[in-house]
Amino acid sequence: MGTAKPPSPPSERPTRQVRRRLKVRNGGASLTGVCDFVEAAASASGFDDRTSHACQLAVCEAVENIIQHGYQADEGEIQVTAQSAPGALTVEIVDRAPAFDPTRYPIDPSATLRDARIGGRGLLMIRRIMDDISYERRGRQNILRLTKNRSFTGA
């Protein structure tokens, strides 16, 4: 009879990397599969369900922005890579849409019904969820890195 191996404590969990590619056609794509794996990656870093779900939401918002405002009606590809380390999740999102730096986009967090579009909400959500956001334009690529290293306890 074998002896069950106890789960390793968070500090002994190895760093692991998962990558997904999403093809965008005619301004649309199914997000299932490209965002939901981020939740599992966050769990692997030791985050609770609420924080892991928030990470999925942030990545989904970033990907939706690239599809709707970056590629618009064009075809394109988005690559999402999640790296789980104990207590830290890093997600890198790479696309070839026109240059856009989401870290510099001005957002008014106040909301009134008079605002015609209620635009920029996705970026606001990303900034409120993630602990560090960095952007780099390398050649024809937009590279967005989102890092989470603290638990999410509410907006």
């Binding site: 779900h53 967090p109 909400r121 606001l124 409120r128 969820i129 509410g154 907006a155």
Partner: peptide, 14 residues
């Protein structure tokens, strides 16, 4: 999850 999304977007006031 819905409540978190609405709050994060700052739309809970509406």
């Amino acid at each position: 999850r819905a409540s978190d999304a609405i709050g994060l977007a700052g739309l809970d006031v509406l």
